[in-house]
Design a protein around this nucleic acid. Structure first.
Lengths: 224, 224
DNA sequence: CCAAAAGTGTTCGTGTTACACCCATGT
DNA sequence: ACATGGGTGTAACACGAACACTTTTGG
C-alpha cells in the first residue's frame, strides 16, 4: 500500500474504550494506570494507537485485550475527539467506544505495563489523563440515553436475572426510582424477555423467577 | 510539537461532510465530482485530510470552504469510518459530519479543482466514491431520528417560515404525513416558536403567519 | 365567484401514573 | 413467627390519533 502523506503533517489515530459495569451498586468504568508514560500517577481509559492494517473494531479488540486482558467486549462507537490540545505529547485523535459488561463474568488482570487496573465508580473518578474525563462523561450520557430506547442492559446483566435486578440496574444508572408494578408491566409487555423455569433463592426471602433476553442482539425498543 | 510515529505505520484522518438541504420538495445532499483523482466520474462528499494543527471542526470548516465554497456550515459529528478497504488509494479513516442548511440562502460555486458540484436528491444518488453511500445512508437515518427529538429543522428552514412549511419539511424528510391540526397543536405547545407580525402572501390563497424559532441553538425537545 | 391554502376544537382510545396488599422462603 | 424481598390489579389522568368545516386571499 502506498502512503503519500508526510511524516509530520497528520495526526495519528487512537482508539479508547469506556467500558462500564455495575459493581456493588455503583456504575463503574474500567481504568488503567500506567507506570511508563508522562502522565505518571494519572488514570486513563484503556486504549492504543490504530495500526495501518486494522479497522477501528480490530484496534478496539486488540487494545482492550492488551491493556485489560479482556476479550469479546462488544463496543459501539461513541464519538471522535480531535482537539489539538487533547494530548500534550503528540498529535493524536481518539475514536472512543462505549462497551458494557458483566463484571462477575470477567477477571481483571494487571499486565506488566501497568501499575494498576481497576473498576472505578463514576462518582469517584481519580485524576484522568488526556480528555478522558470528558469522554467518560459523554459515555455515561450516551449510556443513560440508550437504556431508554434499547436493550443494552443485557450486556451488563448476567445471562439470567430477576426482574428486580433489571429494575435495580435501571434505577442505579438513571438515578431515578420506578414503581415495581409499572416497571414489570411495561418491560414484560415488550415481549423481549423469556421467563425461564429457574428461580433464584439464596436470600432470606421468596425466590424470584429468572428471565433472559430473548435476543442478545442490540435492538431498539421503548424500554421506559 | 514532537511526533514519534513512523511514517507508514498509521492511517491518516479525513473529515467528510454530509450536507443536506431541501430543494424542490426533495431532500438533497451536496456532492462534488472531481476531475483529478482516481475515482474519475464518481461523486463524493466534500471532504479532505486533517492537518496536524487542526481540530476536527476546523478541518470541517476548511474543507467545506475549499470544496464547496460554503462558510458557517454548522455540523455535528456523525460517526467515524475506519474500514481498511474503504479507500483503495491509501489508509484513510474518515470522521463524518452531518450538516443542514437552507439552500436558498447559499450559492454553490464550482472551484477549478472540480468538474461539478450539485445538490443531489437522496432518492437519486449517482456512483459514489469510497464508502460515501454508506455515510449518506447513516446521515439520513440520523437526520430523521434527530428531527423527532431536536429542533434541527431550524437549520434547513429560512429565518421565518409558515407552520405549513415546517410541516411540509417534516413530511418530506420522514416520508410520513401528519394531521395539520395535531401537528400545529403539538409544535406550538412546545413554546419553541415565536409568531412574527408578518404574513406570507404570494400564493393564490389566504396569507399564512410567519414564525421563527425562539432559539436557533440546538436543543432537545420532543417534536413529534 | 372560484380555487387554493390557512386556520381552528372535540371526541375517543391508548398508554402512563399512582397506589397497597398478600405470598413464599430462610432463619 | 418474623423479616425479607417477590409478586400482583385497578382507577385517574394525560397524551396522541382521528376527524371537517370556515376564512382569507388572488385570479
Amino acid at each position: 500500500m502506498k502512503n503519500k502523506y508526510d511524516r509530520f503533517q497528520f495526526p495519528v489515530v487512537a482508539v479508547d474504550a469506556a467500558i462500564f459495569t455495575v459493581k456493588e451498586q455503583k456504575l463503574c468504568v474500567l481504568l488503567v494506570q500506567t507506570n511508563k508514560e508522562e502522565y505518571k500517577g494519572f488514570w486513563a481509559l484503556p486504549g492504543g494507537l490504530m495500526q495501518s492494517h486494522e479497522s477501528l473494531e480490530t484496534t478496539l479488540e486488540r487494545v482492550v485485550k492488551e491493556k485489560a486482558n479482556l476479550h469479546s467486549v462488544h463496543g459501539q462507537q461513541l464519538a471522535t475527539y480531535g482537539d489539538p490540545e487533547r494530548d500534550p505529547f503528540g498529535r493524536v485523535i481518539s475514536v472512543a467506544y462505549l462497551a458494557l459488561l458483566n463484571a462477575d463474568a470477567r477477571e481483571l488482570k494487571t499486565t506488566k505495563d501497568y501499575d494498576d487496573i481497576q473498576w472505578v465508580s463514576i462518582d469517584d473518578l481519580p485524576k484522568l489523563a488526556y480528555d478522558h474525563r470528558r469522554i467518560i462523561e459523554d459515555a455515561v450520557e450516551r449510556l443513560r440515553s440508550k437504556l431508554l430506547y434499547t436493550n443494552i442492559a443485557c450486556h451488563i446483566l448476567p445471562e439470567e436475572f430477576t426482574l428486580s435486578e433489571l429494575q435495580n440496574l435501571y434505577e442505579l444508572i438513571l438515578e431515578k426510582e420506578f414503581d415495581k408494578r409499572n416497571f414489570r408491566k411495561k418491560i414484560l409487555a415488550l415481549g423481549i424477555l423469556q421467563k425461564t423455569e429457574k428461580m433464584r433463592s439464596g436470600s432470606q426471602a421468596r425466590p424470584a423467577a429468572l428471565y433472559r433476553f430473548s435476543q442478545k442482539a442490540d435492538q431498539e425498543v421503548e424500554m421506559i
